[in-house]
Write a protein that binds this DNA or RNA. Sequence first.
DNA 1: TCTATTCTCGTACGCTGTACGGAATGAATG
DNA 2: CATTCATTCCGTACAGCGTACGAGAATAGA
Lengths: 240, 240
Amino acid sequence: MPRAGDGERNAAGVDPEQLWLRPAESRRGRKPSFSREQITETAVALADAEGLEAVTMRRVAAEVGAGVMSLYSYAPDKETLLELMVDHVSGELPATDARTGDWRADLKTIAHLQRALMLRHPWLPGALATRRSLGPHTLAFLESVLAALRPTGLDGAARLEAFAQLTAFVSGHVSYEIAQATAARSADRSAAEARYLATVAADGHHPELAEALAAPGRPLTPEATFTRFLDRLIDGLDSD
Amino acid sequence: MPRAGDGERNAAGVDPEQLWLRPAESRRGRKPSFSREQITETAVALADAEGLEAVTMRRVAAEVGAGVMSLYSYAPDKETLLELMVDHVSGELPATDARTGDWRADLKTIAHLQRALMLRHPWLPGALATRRSLGPHTLAFLESVLAALRPTGLDGAARLEAFAQLTAFVSGHVSYEIAQATAARSADRSAAEARYLATVAADGHHPELAEALAAPGRPLTPEATFTRFLDRLIDGLDSD
DNA sequence: TCTATTCTCGTACGCTGTACGGAATGAATG
DNA sequence: CATTCATTCCGTACAGCGTACGAGAATAGA
């Protein structure tokens, strides 16, 4: 399972049974004007376009064309809405049940798909850092990763841990990748930072930093770096 | 450098030159009643005791015995205060300049120190997920890791990236570790979750999940898992 | 003593998530 | 058909957040 908490006090959230196991058999009462799907999709689109911090209840409601408090008929709180968003985009991951016979290759393929998903939804690593989803799409993905991990010979707990570790790795890498890209894009900020680092490097107390900054080497593509670290991680997965 | 951003709109922060390069030569004017150090330490203590979300400007001010707005004489905004906190605790990392001659062992030692730091300050992974510090302690630590990485033969950019990747890995792992521990501690929540997962596992569509949950295997200590993944990552560091 | 400078902090504003409760809706019941 | 009652819709309100503003207090140099 993906990680959660991150040192904050346990965010708790809502009972997963209540959240995910609802055939929704409301016979009586007023007909819903919106749908959970619709609201979730709107929130996802908003996060894609303007970042996770643009996703406020008021903003989502406005975008959907509903009153703010109407959202609370579809999700008990904002935290839950975020879980719905995470699970929703997880549905974009194809259920690659076609195993090639080489589990390492399979896992690498999966990780690259996960990376692509996170690049498509740059808010996803940030959202995953503080919560996890146990929704149907997430569980389907978990299921397929567990299947891919079967040939490793790892036991149950270890397979679950490997899944968490891989997700955390991809998430961490994409975070870094995005940070680099946006830093390069906002010129002022990164220029000030570069000047500051140059100052520090020139003080004589940071020779290693000075050299690392001076000799950048061939610029690796993020993709290449990702692949390299990923391969290390996966290749060593079944040892001991 | 550690990661930042996490898909959120660039939090920006404040010019690092303004922040970190200040001999503070105020001759005239009223004497400060507090100090940046004091405020930072208070905030760290608060986060240690009650989590990162307890660190509000009002709360820190109250704890310090100052008015809320007085904090803004010492840090231009909350984001900066968090950077100060991150750099402050980074000062607890010993500058292990004693290299053993085995760079892999050196890096593993460093990573274990980092993990211990994060376990001591459980809010740190969460804080690191959205920002990074370029303060003196952080840079000193960076310097020592770069030195340890020198024998790998990686070029400048690759060494910086390796540092970021290692930090992200440790951070990710400790997040997971903490989440597991706190989940186990809050009985209600994890019981509901276990029941839900059991339901899902029983639906026939998640055989892998069912088996992974059923056959937990010997319970690995977090420490052991950490070491195992860390070793994989570091052992493969110089290949390409 | 006067003046320039700096720190202190009460008040206030706009933002957040969401509790509450009344109005609207519509299926089930009498 | 009238009534009941579950359900959804949502305006209002509240506590809490980060922080802009500016008035007052303190201090060093002139």
